[in-house]
């Protein structure tokens, strides 16, 4: 990675941390309680597009770690975030590497698995399987928000100059 690329990667990482904080502060009501747009994940898609799988795989985890260090701490919220991010990252990489899905399919599958990972962690932490009934809502919101994020990212990539040569 050249210095130029490293700086841009850092900028995108900072942007995603800020966006996740903004979403944490300003609750945008989307479909169901707790469902979020996932603006920070949109930045992750840009990283995947320009930097590839190797750098994308670290991106989400770095974002959650930085957010925890800066403001959310390493409590329950951290474990819920990291589990969602890990599952979403793995799914995104698998879909991007082994299927012909476009940015839309990649985004949707990542968004769904992000929610699923969080619910699994809540079920483990609170020792209840009842939370799994929420999976239906998460899949529906994952499809919608994943599509919206892909739409934003696709139009951004088309309009802005290449950030990586």
């Amino acid at each position: 990675m050249t210095t130029k690329m490293m700086v841009r990667y850092g900028f995108l990482l900072a942007l995603s941390v800020i966006l996740s904080y903004v979403e944490y502060l300003v609750e945008i009501p989307i479909l169901f309680p707790g469902a979020k747009l996932g603006l920070a994940n949109a930045v992750g898609l840009i990283v995947l597009y320009y930097f590839g799988i190797k750098y994308f795989s670290m991106f989400g985890i770095l974002r959650v770690l930085l957010s925890a260090i800066l403001w959310t701490g390493f409590g329950i919220n951290f474990f819920i975030s990291i589990s969602g991010t890990l599952l979403a990252t793995i799914m995104t990489i698998l879909v991007a590497k082994y299927t012909k899905a476009s940015i839309y399919g990649i985004s949707i599958s990542g968004a769904i698995l992000h929610g699923l990972g969080q619910v699994i962690m809540v079920a483990i932490l609170y020792q209840t399987l009842y939370m799994l009934t929420y999976v239906v809502f998460l899949i529906i919101s994952g499809i919608i928000t994943g599509y919206l994020m892909a739409l934003i990212v696709a139009s951004l990539i088309c309009r802005m100059p290449k950030i990586v040569n």
Binding site: L48, S102, Y104
Partner: peptide
């Protein structure tokens, strides 16, 4: 890595 920006059947 080439990721398509247009929707396809896999999506």
């Amino acid at each position: 890595m080439d990721i398509s920006l247009k929707k396809n059947k896999t999506d």
